[in-house]
Nucleic acid binder design. Structure first.
Length: 343
DNA sequence: AAAACGGGGCC
DNA sequence: GGCCCAGTTTT
């Protein structure tokens, strides 16, 4: 679709971003610094860092000659500090391997630490006008929607297909504007949520828009199969009352009141004797219930126990409540489910 | 709390 | 070449 590139170029000319601090230069060093800062970091956060960094380290030589500490200081607050270390190391390699200049050969650019295929292509395109394809998260989203490509774009087969597509779409001229347009479209209109399709230059061509799939595409990363865990919850009863235990404030169900837990096959009577000082008699286990979290499935087997002679005092962090009150308390959903079943 | 993200590292 | 991770922000 040759249409795509020309429409994108025209759109970027009229509606794209043109005044960012790293635009309107062909200095590969300046473009490189900006591209690295823009990895996983928003434009608004990058701007002040970019300006301070470029003032202190205006050239490859300035960066290569600096102490790593000072480079990191100028990065402080941007996060992903390996980017800064790679930047420093790459500048030093330019000095030793490339006579202190920024390499123009595409493979040489990509061989520098911290520069992968997409970042190398962005630099080669903006600084040297080379016809190289970028493919970052924004571009993958645009492609998935416009061309109706389903499947998670991180999947090797899909990603490979997208690289082929990205290369096939490259225009023969205006590569810089095209590359910028791809970035601008993904960043400003074809956003992850609530894309602004009414303003999009691709609205007549976009498969996702035509088929109402903009929320489905790009396909999300497949969830890995849920691991299975199992636990026993002790339903310690004294007449109408049951014993709740406060969970630690961190971790699952942090701070909620819950049923005491035990591992399968343990001696439950012995456990409550040692943990709570209670004598109790085992009942028949209740029907298990399964609770699904995002990352695992938990099978809960409720084990009822009837206490024999409840002491006046109760251990700290525990609470006797009537079944009715317990259900109203701050308890985990599956605990509420299993108590409700018993009402 | 979970997903998303580009590059690096490991087989 | 394929798979997974580290580290951080966004939803």
């Amino acid at each position: 679709m040759q249409n795509f590139s020309q429409k994108l170029i025209d759109w970027q000319r009229q509606h794209g971003r043109h005044t960012l601090p790293w635009q309107n230069t062909r200095d590969p060093y300046a473009i490189w610094i900006s591209e690295i800062m823009l990895q996983q970091t928003q434009v608004s956060a990058v701007i002040p860092y970019y300006q301070r960094f470029m003032t202190r380290f205006p050239t490859i030589a300035a960066l290569a000659g600096a102490h790593e500490d000072e480079v990191l200081q100028h990065w402080s607050g941007l996060g992903y500090y390996s980017r800064a270390r790679n930047l420093h190391e790459a500048a030093r390699r330019m000095v030793t391997l490339h006579q202190g200049t920024f390499p123009q050969n595409f493979e040489d650019i990509q061989a520098l630490p911290g520069i992968g295929r997409s970042t190398a292509a962005a630099i080669a395109s903006f600084a040297f006008g080379q016809r190289q394809a970028i493919l970052d998260g924004n571009v993958k989203r645009v492609f998935a929607r416009v061309f109706g490509i389903s499947g998670w774009p991180g999947q090797p087969a899909i990603e490979k297909q997208m690289w082929v597509l990205a290369e096939s779409l490259l225009p023969t001229e205006d590569i810089e504007r095209y590359t910028q347009g791809l970035m601008d479209l993904g960043a400003t209109l074809c956003t992850r949520t609530k894309p602004d399709c009414l303003r999009c230059p691709m609205q007549d061509d976009c498969v996702a828009l035509r088929e109402s799939l903009t929320t489905e595409l790009p396909s999300p990363k497949p969830r890995k199969a849920l691991s299975e865990k199992e636990t026993v919850m002790l339903v310690i009863m004294d007449g109408e009352d049951i014993l709740l235990e406060k969970r630690p404030s961190s971790g699952i169900w942090g701070g909620l009141w819950s049923l005491p837990e035990a591992a399968i096959g343990e001696d439950y009577a012995a456990i409550i004797k040692s943990r709570f000082g209670l004598e109790a008699e085992l009942g028949q286990t209740w029907a298990p219930l399964t609770h699904t979290f995002t990352h695992f499935r938990l099978e809960i087997t409720p084990q009822p126990l009837c206490v024999i002679g409840r002491p006046a005092s109760q251990p700290s962090g525990t609470l006797w409540l009537s079944l009715d009150d317990a259900i109203e308390a701050a308890i985990p959903t599956p605990v509420r489910t299993l108590l409700t079943r018993k009402l």
